[in-house]
Design a protein around this nucleic acid. Structure first.
Lengths: 102, 102
DNA sequence: AGCATAGGCAAGTATTCACTTGCCTATCAA
DNA sequence: TTGATAGGCAAGTGAATACTTGCCTATGCT
């Protein structure tokens, strides 16, 4: 089962957050597509296996969903887990900025 | 300067998240008060120094503010940094649950 | 002054974790 | 069937980090 700890741990790494950024920009990317984007756009010298392991962590946290088609495996961002985590401390907070004070 | 990396790294540890929970429940706690709460309520066998180091990480991330009064140092939760981080991937997301579709 | 309380500093340890290296499987095209 | 592409598995390495231990400073009470 996916718990909050998996989500926070997954978000702790900057490379994984960049991967989420890329998937937010373009969903359904393959491992190799993500690799080349990290290399080209973000100048990240990182091996394919490293990216694969990052994707496994993100998938275990429920932040990324995958679907197989032939020899391709497509990755999609799943923002559902993100909605809960920040609200954990925001709900009981009274110093929140007002929407519009009439 | 406090960057997103500091915030995510700070949130990655379960003990630090518990500390934030405690500060959300009762603000202005001292180091010793937090220590005893972690020990009593959460059964966390952890040293005072460990808690002190966790508080330093949270303070560096801007998630906790402190104020000195005599020999006491009070700690307060600051939720401001939390508002930005989750929205990083939520803003460009169209699968968000609708408020009310007219 | 003397002692207890609240907290800080710094070095050492042990675990976690990101990344690499090497090899293996599966799908598709020629 | 051979080769190329897309991906997976697993052991090993090095760095980051959570935690401890020991000692030190500052404030307040009696």
């Amino acid at each position: 089962m996916v718990v909050a700890d998996d989500i926070f741990k997954a978000l702790a790494d900057p490379t994984r957050r960049t991967i989420l950024d890329e998937l937010a920009e373009k969903s359904g990317q393959t491992l190799f597509e993500i690799c080349s984007r990290l290399s080209m756009k973000h100048r990240l010298g990182i091996s394919r296996q490293a990216v694969s392991q990052h994707l496994a962590v993100l998938e275990a946290a429920g932040l990324v969903g995958t679907r197989r088609e032939g020899r391709y495996k497509f990755h999609d961002l799943n923002t559902a887990p993100l909605r809960q985590i920040a609200e954990r401390w925001l709900v009981s907070d009274t110093s929140r900025p007002e929407e519009s004070t009439p």
